[in-house]
């Protein structure tokens, strides 16, 4: 943190030096990691296993557990 007055007076060279010292663009919080395989398969497998192993959850999502419409 610095005072606004100081920030306003910062030269381009100072700014570049500081930026370089900071390591450039901050990617510390980049947590992207591909789990692998085709995304289509990933999604299809996930939905299929949700149906197979947790039919109660799918029932609940779909409203099947709500009052049936006659």
């Amino acid at each position: 943190m610095r005072k606004l007055s100081e920030a306003l007076n910062m030269t381009l060279e100072e700014y570049k030096d500081e930026y370089a010292q900071a390591g450039g663009y901050n990617t510390r919080f980049n947590t992207n990691h591909r789990l692998g395989g085709l995304f289509r398969d990933f999604l299809a497998d996930g939905c299929a296993s949700l149906i197979k192993e947790h039919p109660d959850i799918v029932d609940h999502i779909s409203g099947k557990q709500d009052k049936e419409v006659e």
Partner: peptide
């Protein structure tokens, strides 16, 4: 909205399976 919920939970389920944890909600 319900289909979107189904897709999201399906994706999470798959990822949770891949790390060997038990999925429940």
């Amino acid at each position: 909205e319900r289909f979107a919920l189904f897709l999201l939970l399906g994706a999470v389920k798959r990822a949770v399976d891949m790390k060997g944890a038990e999925f429940s909600l």
